[in-house]
Simulated scan of single mutants.
Amino acid sequence: MDRLNNINPFARRDSHSQGSVVAYKVLTVLTWLLSFISSVYYTFDKGGWNGYYHPRSIWDVNYHNYSGFTQNYMITSLYWLAIFLLQLGYVAHLFSSSIETVNVACAVGSHFIANNLLHFVWVLLFVHHHFVWSEIILILNFVNLTSLYFRHNTYPRFIHLPAVSGPLAWTFVAIYWNGAIMVPHQNSLVARIFANVFIWSILGYGMFFIMLYKDYTMGFALSVLSASLGVAQFHRQVVAFQWIFAFVIMAVLFIFTMLVAVPAWTGKEAPWGRRATTNDTERAPLLADP
């Protein structure tokens, strides 16, 4: 078992060798650049096909295949821009002079590298209309990030938000978004009814982390993505339930997020969830007793 843990890049370790740290630094920077550049490029690439317009940017595909989970390009783009910028802060901690900080950053490194690679593959598949394969990639990344969350949810916000909760929240919503595009007749009455039902899973998913783990970063991320969904649905069809549901979900998540965030920022405890084991306000909101 010890030998298996030594060769398993996803095994939890409290310390890392100098060679491992160098490898994490190189692979993290390269895969982050791959993920970032591909996302930016395919945000604006208009594409072309036999002389005719063929939607190939992320957002052209989004609007060309309108569904009950279509996102607003501006809000979601700003969400991802914020995540990418915060991830630069995480990457910087790999180069810290503090051994403890480097070890903490390396602990999530394998999952973060896998997330970058899977995100890059998803972008390529999505913009080239391979929606079934892109859905499979999203599910794989959801498993990767979920494993990361439950194994490493006690780390400080500068690691947790950009490397764990931010990408996980997006991947959860993107599974519905991509999945809705994948199915035929995604804007039919039956599809809209299913969308009206499954949208509430966003609320349930967010409340799980807010109530049990007091994780306001997850609540805030999902509230922003719910707002993006609501704006896109409102612009497409004013008389519809989907945008109303989306804004209700956004409001509930945001309210409960603030009920957790404000006490955490002031060094107090939220009146529910697992009790923190430290007084460090940088780590306390994300710590839980085993």
Rank of each mutant, 00 (worst) to 15 (best):
A264M: 04
F120T: 11
V224C: 08
F247W: 08
R236S: 10
Y90Q: 02
R275E: 13
F10E: 04
V164T: 11
Y155R: 08
S67V: 02
V29H: 04
H160R: 08
T217C: 09
M74R: 09
L78I: 14
A82N: 08
V61S: 07
L225G: 09
S134F: 02
I113L: 00
G230T: 05
I202H: 00
A270S: 14
R236F: 15
M74F: 15
M207T: 08
V173C: 00
N115C: 06
L124I: 15
W122Y: 12
N8H: 09
I137V: 15
L212M: 15
V197R: 06
V248R: 06
R275S: 11
I99R: 12
L203D: 01
I136G: 06
F254M: 10
V121A: 13
E269L: 09
N141Y: 08
A180E: 09
A163P: 01
H54S: 15
Y41V: 07
D289P: 03
S223W: 08
Q233A: 13
Y42A: 03
L203K: 00
R157T: 13
W272H: 09
D280C: 09
G166Q: 07
L4A: 12
A246R: 05
N116I: 02
F234Q: 09
Q18Y: 10
D2H: 14
T278N: 10
L30I: 07
A163K: 00
A191N: 07
T31M: 05
G48D: 12
I83R: 00
F120V: 01
I99P: 00
S228W: 06
N153T: 05
I58L: 15
S165D: 04
V102R: 08
F150P: 01
A23C: 06
A284V: 06
T257S: 12
V190N: 06
Y205L: 11
A169Y: 07
H111T: 05
I181E: 02
M218P: 04
P290T: 08
V239Q: 11
C106L: 00
D289F: 12
E282K: 10
W265P: 01
L145G: 05
F84G: 00
V143M: 14
F172P: 01
V40K: 05
L189K: 13
V123W: 01
I37Y: 12
S97R: 14
H54M: 15
W49N: 15
S97W: 08
F194W: 12
L145T: 09
Y52K: 14
Y216R: 04
M250R: 08
F234G: 03
F131N: 07
G109Y: 03
Y42S: 01
G273K: 05
Q87W: 06
G204M: 06
L124M: 15
V132F: 11
K214W: 10
F234H: 13
G179M: 03
L168S: 01
F36P: 01
T146A: 12
W32M: 04
T154M: 09
T76C: 11
A221M: 13
S57D: 06
G51M: 13
M258F: 11
L118C: 05
E100H: 13
L27V: 10
W177I: 00
V26A: 09
S67K: 06
G179V: 03
L287D: 13
Y149M: 12
F194R: 10
L4F: 15
N196E: 10
I255T: 07
A276C: 04
